[in-house]
Design a protein around this nucleic acid. Structure first.
Lengths: 239, 239
DNA sequence: CGCCGCATTGACGTTCGTCAAGTCTAGTGG
DNA sequence: CCACTAGACTTGACGAACGTCAATGCGGCG
């Protein structure tokens, strides 16, 4: 457990527009700054929280990259999401005061710790924060609907194409390239998220390379033909 | 659009413990009653709301049975859930002030209309309501994690067994039988939810019948061997 | 009574999983 | 600095599970 009590100000944070509501009064921002007083570092390969642990806080990712996954009793394992800077993690713990999934850092990471009882107290006074919380949870629900569509009705190529487009779009929103990315997860983790075996993920990457849609060198991916990927995700209806 | 302005009291509602927080003061219950002043009837086959419509309210199901589904641009369709009495529907609309899925009644239904701005106002004053809202949204996120596990890693028999167990458990919590249920949805809708084709759903039902685990006559299902179903969902590890 | 939508069943094809062999890369220690 | 190793990745051959297509059955409702 690596806690720092160094004050960090949301007001200065370059991720503010990703994780906090906009248009707050300075006084409201101050109160949020007080709430987010603690940061925590999470080394690559270690967990931020684990299934079964008591839920106390939500976490805003400042740097680094996480996966969340659930395990069924018989040992099956499902990656439920990959989270990057500016995203909120831990919402699963609210229902039963215990986390129901594991959050593992895929690279050295740092998160802002936001004690949930303080979030609730503060959102009773700061309407914008209250509304923001609701939006964040609703957004997660809608995201998961999309994953259900993917898992329920798409073929392997479509899943991987959708996955790459989603990743690169989120990275681009954070100032990274629209066409190049480094995968922080293994083929197996991608496969678990997409409901595929790692061999299928690998083969599908190879197919994309053959078709000149992407270049792949291990975890480095360059997208050559974004529209090609889009056409794979959304094949044209026979007119 | 079928609106009723008949006052209905949460305080008298037999579904209260399913959809509202417990342990409210009488005065707080009154205020919630005021908020939920309107009910709406939804005829079988019609929509409560549709993808793209402006979001204004959440809905608590009083009677009836719904499905929610999303459609991708190329016409694919994914059922994201089946909802029954006491459950809350419409959470997807909060993020962008527009609904992102369709909610269709699978039998004649009645819902309590809860204007979302009033929910937010009231949750600032009634802590229990605020916390309850957070739990409902978190519960939905956790439920969807479970569906992702199902879609991502289970075989057809496991999916259908898990589906039946989940349905019958929810029905039992509402006072219905632990072993008998009537499916309100078609094989195709079950298949869409489970990421299977309707023929596969039908064949899997037939297999369960052959194995003496259930009896099926059209949409009437009687579960003979609940443990048998459980063993299908969670096969024992080779020890 | 006859129609229509839903469900069942069979034959066959496709996609993806499984198993296995082999390659590449980064990290480690001599 | 280089050899060695472990883990990640790739690729091929084969099979199982599920999808597709098509024929048929059943039940409820007008």
């Amino acid at each position: 457990m690596n806690l720092q009590t160094i004050k960090v100000a949301c007001s200065n944070c370059n991720l503010r527009e990703l994780c906090m509501p906009m248009g707050l009064k300075p006084e409201e921002l101050d109160r949020i700054d007080q709430m987010v007083a603690v940061r925590r570092k999470v080394k690559r390969g270690t967990t931020l929280f684990r299934n079964g642990e008591v839920f106390t806080s939500l976490y805003a990712i400042r740097t680094g990259f996480f996966k969340t996954s659930i395990a069924s009793e018989d040992g099956r394992d499902q990656v439920t999401g990959f989270q990057m800077a500016g995203e909120i993690i831990g919402l699963d713990g609210i229902v039963n005061d215990h986390h129901t999934c594991d959050a593992v850092a895929l690279e050295d990471a740092e998160v802002c710790v936001m004690p949930f009882d303080q979030i609730e107290t503060l959102s009773r006074e700061v309407t914008a924060l209250q509304h923001h919380m609701h939006k964040i949870m609703s957004r997660e629900i809608v995201r998961e609907h999309g994953v259900m569509l993917l898992l329920g009705s798409m073929r392997a190529e479509e899943r991987l194409a959708a996955f790459l487009l989603n990743l690169v779009q989120r990275l681009h929103a954070r100032g990274f390239s629209q066409s190049e990315l480094i995968l922080r997860m293994t083929r197996e983790e991608i496969g678990s998220y997409l409901g595929l075996k790692l061999e299928t993920v690998s083969r599908t990457f190879s197919k994309f390379v053959e078709d000149g849609i992407v270049e792949v060198k291990q975890r480095h991916v360059r997208i050559i033909d974004t529209d090609g990927l889009r056409r794979i995700v959304t094949p044209q209806m026979p007119s």
